[in-house]
């Protein structure tokens, strides 16, 4: 594995010296409809298709079928990659619905799952969608932070580069518990702002360890081929 893992979104990769640092844990945060899942799908698709890096996308909240529709819509053909075990779309939400107590999945359970599955499937790129769904498992922010800290440490010990997806509950809060950004190596914020009655998408790299990254807010567009980031433009 190289030191950088490109996402396949050229404009974004230009902002961060070519991609996410290998074996890092990154947070992709933004409001509902901000393009977080699509961003993460680009990351998986590029890894599995172009770089022969097996990728696993773990869904905890959104229906698996909904993601499959997104893939089709943007021409991301994962069919042959799934057959070749280079892409795995795992729906752990299926367990949440009908678990023994019907309870949400927590970090320990997820860690137990990943400890086995990452090795078995030789996964190099991992997406957890989303932390918001796991947050439902915990009664307090302190407990959540403690478990997330241990979980991030576990991920760094695996030979995998991870994107954690988190929903921003409102325009003033990046994440639900306000702690995720301190524990992650990188934070990418996908914004959705209303300007003169229209929604404008933006992308900002707030933090990325081991990287000289751009700190500007850039226009982001969702086109027929997915996400495009205007690296040479800034939103003022």
């Amino acid at each position: 594995m190289s030191d950088r893992l490109p996402t396949g979104i050229e404009g974004f990769d230009l902002l961060v010296q070519g991609g996410f640092p290998a074996r890092s844990v990154s947070l992709v945060a933004g409001p509902a409809g901000g393009g977080k899942s699509l961003f993460a799908l680009h990351f998986c698709h590029a890894g599995a298709r172009r770089y022969n890096e097996p990728s696993m996308y773990v869904v905890l909240e959104e229906a698996k079928e909904s993601l499959q529709r997104v893939m089709q819509m943007f021409g991301m053909d994962f069919g042959d990659l799934e057959k070749a075990d280079r892409f795995l779309l795992i729906d752990l939400g299926e367990l949440r619905v009908s678990g023994s107590q019907g309870s949400p999945i927590g970090f320990r359970e997820l860690q137990d799952f990943l400890a086995s599955s990452l090795k078995t499937a030789h996964v190099r790129r991992l997406v957890i969608d989303s932390l918001s769904a796991i947050g439902l498992h915990y009664g307090s922010a302190a407990e959540y932070r403690e478990r997330l800290f241990a979980f991030c440490r576990f991920l760094r010990g695996m030979d995998v580069t991870t994107l954690l997806i988190a929903e921003s509950p409102d325009p003033h809060a990046l994440t639900q518990f306000g702690v995720e950004q301190f524990l992650a190596d990188s934070v990418v914020h996908l914004g959705l702002e209303e300007v003169k009655g229209e929604l404008r998408r933006t992308l900002t790299v707030r933090k990325m360890r081991f990287t000289k990254h751009d700190t500007g807010k850039h226009p982001m567009h969702i086109t027929s081929v997915g996400i495009e980031v205007a690296a040479d433009e800034k939103v003022v």
């Binding site: 752990l92 367990l95 619905v97 678990g99 023994s100 137990d112 799952f113 086995s116 599955s117």
Partner: peptide
């Protein structure tokens, strides 16, 4: 359990038994 860990496996089988 071998593929996905014992906790996930138990949850899966338990969910099926309850359904």
């Amino acid at each position: 359990s071998e593929a996905m860990g014992r906790a996930t496996a138990l949850r899966l089988l338990s969910g099926a038994a309850e359904e």
